[in-house]
C-alpha cells in the first residue's frame, strides 16, 4: 500500500495535489490562467419557510 493511502488520504486528495503541482510547473503564460482552477468556492444559503433564513454561511 502506498504511503499516502496509509496516511488516510484518498485518490481524490492525491489527484488534487498532483493537479496543483502541475499547474505551478507551467510556463508563465499559461500559469496564471491555470492557477484560477486551484480554488473552488461554494456558497450555501439555508432556506426556511420559503425564504432564505440567513444570507450565507
Amino acid at each position: 500500500m502506498s504511503a499516502w493511502r496509509q496516511a488516510g488520504l484518498s485518490y481524490i486528495n492525491y489527484s488534487n495535489i498532483a493537479a496543483k503541482v502541475l499547474r505551478r510547473s507551467l510556463k508563465p503564460e499559461f500559469r496564471s490562467e491555470a492557477l484560477k482552477r486551484d480554488e473552488s468556492h461554494v456558497r450555501i444559503t439555508p432556506w426556511a419557510n420559503g425564504r432564505p433564513a440567513r444570507k450565507y454561511i
Binding site: 503541482v21 505551478r24 507551467l26 510556463k27 508563465p28 500559469r31 482552477r37
Partner: peptide, 22 residues
C-alpha cells in the same frame, strides 16, 4: 485527467521551484 498539458507548456525552472517547495 484532472489536469493535462502538452509537454511544450511545462517549464523546467518552475518545476524545479515546485520540487524544492515540496
Amino acid at each position: 485527467a484532472e489536469e493535462a498539458h502538452p509537454l511544450e507548456s511545462l517549464d523546467r525552472s518552475a518545476a524545479q521551484e515546485a520540487l524544492s517547495k515540496a
